[in-house]
Design a binder for these strands. Structure first.
Lengths: 202, 202
DNA sequence: CCACCCTCCTGACATTTGTCACCCCCGGGA
DNA sequence: TCCCGGGGGTGACAAATGTCAGGAGGGTGG
């Protein structure tokens, strides 16, 4: 009995290449491919795959939100996250959203098929290196507002621009930023953005 | 007669997947795979591939420098850049370095094999969308020093930190930054970094 | 009920950042 | 030769940023 797969990745070339790679395995079959998070749910409902391989960074809905949707609407479909960045926060949030596995694109190609089979068998698959990183990094220390403000600061916006976008006072934005800078151990807005991104807190 | 290929990409999974994809074509054969720019030249000299597929973003030497090396040491090996980001500056610099083709990872998987064959036949392969972007974006307006200073500012360093790193005076760093901000049309250091990165000027 | 945290705001303050004018030196064209 | 652009620098100034103290409301848990 073959394992039926859904592939979701925004880069068409990577998607097709993964399809070719997995298609070489006699017990695996790619039944659907999508290029954005928004299409995942519909494709799952249409094709009832056994395992869905989702990227985290995608246009529209991200892979983690898509995971939650899939778990809710189609509990029989297991989710394996396949992503570029081993951000500790991604792993934590993916597992909380109900993902069964988490693989970074650095892992050898030969291991992917195994990971798929393990996930299909009901096991958890997690990069051990990443798991420890996730422990030390812990959950995001940022409050909801601080996260929002930092996100708005990512593109280099000024305090005034952020305040306008979030309907806040200038001073409030500065306070939230200052707090976020302190919590991330940065001395700087830009540094805070970088470390928060690196930990998957944004 | 089969076309012999070299694959260079830092993500093992993508590398293996591309290998599987291209391996499906009867006239193509992957003879070597490497995971960093530093290994490219040695692999080219050892295996004499007809076409080398190089990523731009790699640990160690980047794909563009690797392209120049390959062209110098093994002129018979043609280079096809396969990269995530369609930065205009990347395209320009890749072609100047002697690349025969430039493909972004958004392109459909089916077109990759064709691109390889075209490159092998001596043709140029360039994403037309990207080519026009490259024209409007033009060459980097930044001087060598301005570029250096902006690069040093990428991680959110303060003026003082940049000055120490580059053995410059604080005021000089501020002048270079101000000039770079003006040339990029930004109002801000962070914005300047972002637009310069987006254009492949860093 | 109280304590605690988050949110939102104000005002003040020191520091950093961005800008401008102006200086010098050097090397390559016109 | 003069002129111009790039690199390096100084000094001064306005604006933006980061920090701190403090106040007011709201929600949650002990």
């Amino acid at each position: 009995m073959t394992i039926r797969l859904l592939l979701a990745d925004d880069q068409a070339l990577v998607r097709g290449a993964l399809s070719a790679l997995l298609g070489l395995e006699p017990d695996l079959e790619v039944v659907a491919e999508v290029g954005s998070g928004d299409e995942v749910l519909a494709a799952v409902l249409a094709h009832h795959p056994d395992v869905a391989l989702l990227d985290v960074e995608m246009p529209g809905m991200d892979g983690i939100s898509a995971t939650a949707e899939v778990r809710r609407a189609a509990p029989d479909t297991r989710v394996l996250i396949v992503t570029t960045f081993g951000r500790p926060g991604y792993l934590r949030r993916a597992l909380q959203a109900g993902a069964s596995g988490f693989v970074v694109k650095d892992t050898p190609a030969a291991q992917l098929a195994d990971a798929v089979r393990r996930v299909h068998a009901g096991l958890r698959v997690v990069d051990p290196m990443l798991a420890t990183d996730s422990l030390v990094a812990g959950e995001s220390p940022l409050t909801a507002r601080e996260t929002e403000v930092l996100q708005a600061a990512r593109d280099g916006s000024s305090v005034a621009a952020i305040a306008r976008k979030l309907f806040l006072s200038d001073g409030t934005v500065r306070n939230h930023l200052s707090s976020a800078i302190g919590k991330t151990g940065a001395t700087n807005r830009a540094e805070a953005v970088i470390t928060a991104e690196g930990n998957g807190w944004l």
